[in-house]
């Protein structure tokens, strides 16, 4: 009788362990897949953000710096939009030529380093892409278009 009880308890324990192992394995796999999907989506989104009519140049894949400057005044109106898309940070950093390490605004433009377009101050996972940052400047009394190289950094909220 005792042997029988021990045997049955052992079987129940064995099945429980198998089930537990299977659950842990499955959830780890799902988490890994979710991370990979998030990364792929994020990289695809970088290009799209640069292409938003609020930032994009007239032609080609580049950011219009003077639009970004004008956008800074309206950035509050877009906060809800970024929040809904789970974006935590949007930053544009001038990479070339090297400039003063100061935030950009109407006074410091164009000799400035970075634009903080949006910062929710939440934890994020950031991705970046390089692209031209173009603006109109004056040379010898004539308006001309000039492009620097910038890094667009977008941080996405890390799901809890």
């Amino acid at each position: 009788m005792q042997e029988m009880i021990f045997f049955l308890v052992a079987i129940v324990l064995l099945f429980s362990l198998i089930l537990l192992f299977f659950t842990v394995f499955q959830s780890a796999k799902i988490k890994q897949m979710a991370t990979e999907i998030r990364r792929e989506k994020t990289i695809a989104m970088l290009e799209s953000i640069a292409n938003m009519p609020e930032f994009s140049c007239r032609q080609g894949f580049c950011i219009d710096e003077q639009k970004v400057l004008a956008f800074l005044d309206k950035s509050k109106e877009y906060e809800d939009f970024w929040k809904k898309l789970k974006i935590a940070l949007i930053k544009i950093e001038r990479v070339y030529p090297s400039v003063n390490n100061v935030d950009c605004n109407k006074q410091s433009f164009p000799n400035c380093k970075r634009y903080i377009v949006y910062d929710s101050r939440k934890n994020y996972e950031a991705y970046a892409t390089y692209l031209p940052l173009c603006y109109i400047y004056n040379e010898g009394g004539f308006a001309m278009e000039k492009c620097d190289i910038a890094e667009l950094i977008v941080g996405f909220e890390i799901p809890e």
Binding site: A70, F71, I136, A143
Partner: peptide
């Protein structure tokens, strides 16, 4: 909203010869 941004751009760029 975009018209506002374009207006802002025009004001900024007008300083640079446009």
């Amino acid at each position: 909203k975009i018209a506002d941004i374009l207006k802002g751009k025009a004001e900024i760029a007008s300083v640079y010869g446009c």
